[in-house]
């Protein structure tokens, strides 16, 4: 017979729950409420109902923000997962060199976004940048990495991939190390080459890891803000105004709490739908198992 705990479990959860109520649940509700008002933080808020949502949808701005953010996310998730998996396969070897390279790649994930964004603004500078100099040396046409509206989102995505690939590499490495070596040996004895072994042994066992990396990178890419604010300020011609930056712009530049809140509500809904879809894909892929590394 287990002696019962003397203090109530809810008391132990209390401090955490209180913090979450104040800083997560109340703000969520408050945001939804504020989205129904027009408020510039100076005069009194005025009830407008769904007008903020209508105004955002009317000019198509909402869909443009959503499309841009989704496009950015596809590039970031696809890029960082592909690169992270390839690097994990390449660098899963003993030896000091490989350990150093793993560390070097992961270090970018640890360093501040501010440092990374500022550094890449310099590297991509049309006059002073190394990238532009390399294009000149190869007699390739000039690319306005951050000044051409068509190039700006892919450029920010590439910088983000550089920053977060270390993360997916680390998680894939953990997944790879959970693949039993005996399976590889058995497949090799059956005459399977390296590619066949990857296709039929490694990849099926790595799929839960891949689904997990996809979910987390998707959420990270949807939160992109620092890179936009520091590298482009949402420009050129609003080409890089991603979701979080759009919310920030509404509240701190346009002083429109209502529209900012409406955008945040939509942002939250999109995030929830994406997370739910990902979770479902994750579950259906791995009947009965809960991922490799839980």
């Amino acid at each position: 017979m287990t002696p019962r705990a003397r203090s109530h479990p809810w008391l132990m959860l209390g401090p955490s729950l209180a913090a979450w109520v104040v800083f997560v649940f109340v703000p969520l509700g408050l945001g939804a409420y504020q989205s129904l008002f027009s408020w510039d933080m100076l005069t009194e808020p005025a009830w407008v109902g769904g007008a903020n949502y209508a105004a955002l949808a009317e000019g198509g701005e909402l869909w443009r923000i959503l499309g841009r953010t989704l496009g950015f996310s596809v590039l970031v998730v696809g890029g960082s997962m592909t690169l992270g998996l390839l690097l994990a396969l390449l660098l899963d070897r003993p030896g000091g060199l490989f350990a150093f390279v793993r560390g070097a790649i992961f270090s970018a994930y640890v360093v501040s976004w501010v440092a990374v964004a500022l550094l890449w603004v310099l590297l991509l500078d049309p006059d002073r940048g190394v990238a532009a100099a390399a294009l000149r040396a190869l007699h390739l046409p000039r690319v306005g990495f951050l000044s051409d509206p068509a190039a700006a989102v892919p450029t920010l995505a590439a910088v983000t991939v550089w920053k977060i690939t270390g993360y997916s590499m680390i998680v894939f490495l953990a997944g790879l190390r959970a693949v039993p070596r005996s399976l590889h040996e058995a497949a090799a004895l059956d005459g399977a080459g390296a590619l066949a072994r990857f296709r039929w042994v490694t990849w099926p066992l790595l799929r839960p890891t891949a689904a997990f990396v996809a979910t987390t990178s998707l959420i990270v890419s949807f939160q992109a803000f620092d890179v936009v604010r520091i590298m482009t300020g949402g420009g050129p011609a609003r080409a890089t105004t991603l979701f979080v930056y759009a919310v920030y712009e509404q509240v701190f530049m346009n002083l429109s709490v209502g529209k900012a809140s409406a955008l945040a509500v939509v942002y939250f809904l999109v995030l929830s739908v994406l997370a739910a879809l990902q979770l479902r894909a994750w579950r259906s892929q791995t009947p009965g198992s809960r991922g490799t590394a839980t």
């Binding site: 703000p27 945001g31 504020q34 939160q223 509240v251 945040a264």
Partner: peptide
């Protein structure tokens, strides 16, 4: 209680910052 913890995992500060800023203000 556990569901609440998981729910909080899915709400990044980027969702709540407008309201939290106004609360602090």
């Amino acid at each position: 209680a556990f569901a609440l913890v998981v729910a909080c995992l899915l709400v990044p500060p980027q969702v709540t910052f407008v309201s939290v800023f106004l609360m602090f203000a």
